[in-house]
């Protein structure tokens, strides 16, 4: 019967066209519902006044206008820039650690794993460890400072140092991450080029700069991506170590947003969404740069 065999025939003829969409559908649907649509919704909510339960009221740009007059916003923005700038130190530090460990001696594999350890641990635990480390009276760090300078500093209670203290805690796992990226990169160097450069008497710093680093460019790119994203995403450590304090001096946009939208200060979803949109726009600058580079690479394949 021709009509009976038609579905199978239709499938056979068209499966190349339909199959990709069938394979794509479940994952793409989830991603759409939980990631892509919420981005649009957040932008929409940022123009509303909303407590999360009652009706939304359209307020136009009022949330953004208020943001521009909010001192905490500027503190958070400044701290985000500080995070971004200082977090990038993880890249040279990770490279240095990788160069130090890129040897073939007994037990080196275990050393590499142990150096990588901080990245595997939850940031909550990292935050608690550094809180203990910085604690006045008995924290190891404050004891060391006392021994060196004679006076004690409570890092996390001091508006001048608090953000630096948290960033240092963040650099610990991030350096480990960059280190592992560079170790992999160093494993795949082109030995011939290096030998040739050595023949030409290139050594140490010059060899690193002109021969090794260009070969490590892919690792550096990935390290840049994950470090920039990590710096702007910083939330866990701020929440654990200071909750933005003292007096809001260690605020960052991600925590400020959370605090405004969901905390004892009240549920200001619209205002929170506006902060999130600002953070999103800052990150979009970097995301666009990364994607443009990836597109260029895809074309070269």
């Amino acid at each position: 019967m021709p009509t009976n065999s038609q579905p199978a025939g239709f499938w056979k003829r068209n499966q190349m066209k339909i199959a990709p969409y069938v394979f794509l559908a479940p994952g793409a649907l989830m991603f759409l519902i939980y990631v892509l649509i919420p981005i649009v919704q957040s932008i929409w909510i940022s123009f509303q006044d909303w407590d999360g339960l009652g009706p939304k009221t359209w307020v136009g740009l009022a949330n953004y206008v208020e943001l521009l007059d909010d001192d905490t916003f500027y503190v958070a923005l400044k701290n985000n820039l500080l995070w971004l700038g200082l977090y990038l130190l993880a890249i040279p530090m990770g490279l240095a650690a990788a160069l130090f460990l890129n040897q073939n001696v007994w037990g080196i594999r275990l050393y590499k794993s142990l150096f990588f350890f901080p990245f595997v641990i939850s940031q909550v635990v990292v935050g608690l460890m550094f809180t203990w480390f910085y604690a006045p009276d008995f924290g190891l760090f404050s004891q060391a400072i006392k021994w060196l300078t004679g006076s004690e500093v409570a890092i996390l209670a001091d508006e001048r140092y608090v953000t630096y203290g948290i960033i240092a805690a963040g650099l610990w796992p991030q350096t480990a991450y960059c280190m592992i990226l560079y170790l992999t990169g160093l494993n795949n160097l082109n030995a011939e080029q290096i030998e040739a450069a050595r023949m030409d008497n290139a050594r140490g710093w010059r060899l690193l700069r002109h021969v090794i680093l260009p070969q490590l460019a892919p690792a550096t790119f990935i390290a840049m991506v994950v470090t920039v994203i990590g710096a702007l995403r910083s939330f866990d450590l701020v929440s654990i170590m200071t909750a933005g304090g003292p007096y809001g001096s260690s605020q960052v946009l991600s925590y400020f947003m959370y605090e405004q939208a969901l905390s004892e200060y009240g549920y200001r979803m619209g205002y929170g969404a506006a902060i999130a949109v600002v953070l999103f726009l800052i990150m979009m600058v970097f995301i666009t740069l990364f994607i443009v580079r990836m597109i260029a690479q895809e074309r070269n394949r």
């Binding site: 991603f31 939980y34 990631v35 892509l36 649509i37 919420p38 981005i39 919704q41 957040s42 909510i45 999360g52 991506v225 994203i229 702007l232 995403r233 939330f235 946009l253 991600s254 947003m257 959370y258 939208a261 969901l262 979803m269 929170g272 969404a273 902060i275 999130a276 949109v277 953070l279 999103f280 990150m283 970097f286 995301i287 990364f290 994607i291 990836m294 597109i295």
Partner: peptide, 19 residues
């Protein structure tokens, strides 16, 4: 690229709608 870009966005832009 939508999948890739989605990876990099800040969680906060998803927070209110996902909650």
């Amino acid at each position: 690229f939508a999948f890739v870009a989605g990876n990099f966005i800040p969680f906060q832009i998803l927070m209110v709608p996902v909650r």
